[in-house]
């Protein structure tokens, strides 16, 4: 069973240019969910101060609605058997789509990958990836 843990960070919806210009601390993981939407794992609201200045109407909120786990190569290969879409080959890469029929996201780095989904899906996702622990 995959242990999917809550990912703490911030969610920022702002103009794409403001997001493009933002810089984040080194220990954060920056997932660009959409041109105007970013989920920064490990960041706090203070880190988005620049964006708040650039875009006064930006939505900046604490985000704890995603769960995920880091996978190393073997586990990722196993998870990949439940993915019908093309997994990007460049690194780092961010991809979103169904994993075992559950809406999910993948953040792929050189040596590992973060698999994440919205927390209400956590149970079904880990259940379906039982063999992938």
């Amino acid at each position: 069973m995959l242990a999917l843990d809550t990912l703490h960070g911030i969610r920022v919806v702002a103009s794409p240019s403001a997001l493009d210009a933002a810089s984040w601390p080194d220990n954060t993981t920056v997932l660009r969910l959409a041109p105007d939407d970013v989920f920064v794992i490990g960041a706090t609201i203070e880190h988005a101060a620049v964006i708040a200045t650039a875009d006064a109407d930006a939505i900046i909120v604490a985000e704890s609605g995603f769960v995920g786990c880091w996978l190393h190569n073997d586990a990722l290969a196993e998870v990949a058997t439940h993915i019908e879409w093309h997994i990007p080959t460049h690194r780092p890469a961010f991809a979103q789509g169904y994993v075992a029929g559950v809406p999910a996201k993948l953040w792929l780095t050189d040596d590992r990958a973060l698999l994440l989904c919205a927390s209400p899906y956590a149970h079904d996702l880990s259940e379906r990836l039982k063999g992938s622990a």
């Binding site: 969610r11 919806v13 105007d36 939407d37 109407d57 609605g65 899906y121």
Partner: peptide, 12 residues
């Protein structure tokens, strides 16, 4: 229209 939209259905 110039708006930002964030769906928080599953986060909250």
């Amino acid at each position: 229209l110039q708006v930002h939209i964030l769906d928080r259905t599953m986060s909250l």
